[in-house]
Design a protein around this nucleic acid. Sequence first.
DNA 1: TGGTTAGTTGAACAGTTGATGAAGTGATGG
DNA 2: CCATCACTTCATCAACTGTTCAACTAACCA
Lengths: 139, 139
Amino acid sequence: MAATRKSATPAPGCRPEDHPRASPRVPPVGAASLERAARLFRAIGDPPRLHLLALLAQGEACVTELAANQREELSTISQRLRVLRAENIVARRREGKHILYSLADQHIVDLVFNALAHASERPPDIPASPPMKERGKHA
Amino acid sequence: MAATRKSATPAPGCRPEDHPRASPRVPPVGAASLERAARLFRAIGDPPRLHLLALLAQGEACVTELAANQREELSTISQRLRVLRAENIVARRREGKHILYSLADQHIVDLVFNALAHASERPPDIPASPPMKERGKHA
DNA sequence: TGGTTAGTTGAACAGTTGATGAAGTGATGG
DNA sequence: CCATCACTTCATCAACTGTTCAACTAACCA
């Protein structure tokens, strides 16, 4: 999110009849759900933070360990963890002088594993599609 | 991403022996995979863009339709779609005067549905954990 | 051919984010 | 009780992101 000015579309220049589509038989998604899902994705949508999650997917770890692993300062890691904590992605518990972090629930574990597995398979996505010219029918 | 200065941790103050953990029996994640997975998540980690995906999950739609639905300008929608396109999250094809967008593959469809379903279930996450005080053992 | 509709692209600005050093907090150790 | 370790929080600042307006391009229609 960055700028957030608003206005709106003046009027739909084309009508639904112009191009009938599939079944709109899906309930409208609540704005709150969208918001929460997006916040979750955004939190893990940062390489350093996702790396942290990948490390935690291997088991609990204290902040110092994580910092050593990422070659970063404690405070930097702590800030990253703060973001993840704000979305309930990670859990923490104190163990003596250390604070051990872990992934908050199985859903997160799955999400992280799936994402990494998928990303390891898919080719690097070089081109990003040319300006588009032809009338490409669905085939 | 914002600031990107660097330095590094001076030295790990605590050793692994200090707090033995589970099995580190997971191969180290490639930096490239992390990067790609993070880019994907970041692209969908924005309410307006996720909303677009939710709409596309119901079927193909042209830019004007999407704009009308979100009450935004064409150009705004187009820019959002550009971001999604850059990560190969959506596909487009021309149909006469219109350009129809759709979700690029089943993986994305699943991701969107799962995210929204999950977000609809989970409570709004109000507290975000107090300053932490007690020595919370795993119970 | 010119006009209109549909969409894309570019530049600029405002708002947000993340890293960092310094200062603060909480446990533990001596 | 004071020092130290392990973090967390704060303020700051540079870098990035998203929206918007103003061109610009592509199809289609008269």
